[in-house]
Amino acid sequence: MLSINALKEFGANVEEGLARCLNDEDFYLKLVKKAADSTDFDLLKTAVEQKDYKTAFETAHSIKGVFGNLSVTPIYEPTAQITELLRADTDTDYTELLGSIIKNGNKLKELCK
C-alpha cells in the first residue's frame, strides 16, 4: 500500500505534490499510483537504445511532465535531464540516466503494490 511516508522516504517532494492536489492525500496517492502503473519505463530505454530519439524524447517528456507535477523527484529529475538531451538530439551515453530512471521507476511500482 502506497503511503505519504513511503513517498517521502523515497525522496518525493510530497508537500509540493500535495499542494497541487489541494492537499487531498487520497487523491494525490491515487494519482501517483495511477502514474506508476501506467508508465512503461522500459519503452524509453528501448527507444534510446534504438536511437529513435524522437520517440525517446516524447516518452521522456511525458514521464517528466507527469512525475514533475506529482513532485516525484527521484523520477522527475533524471527524466528532466534526459529530456533536454534528447530534445537537442544529443548522441551521448544515456546508460546512467536511463539506469536511474528505470531503477527508481521500478522502486515506485514496488511501493505501490
Binding site: C21, L22, K34, A35, S62, V66, N69
Partner: peptide
C-alpha cells in the same frame, strides 16, 4: 492535455 494525470490534477483544481 494528453496526460491523464495532468487532466486529473487540473480537473481537481
Amino acid at each position: 492535455d494528453d496526460e491523464f494525470i495532468n487532466r486529473e490534477i487540473l480537473g481537481n483544481l
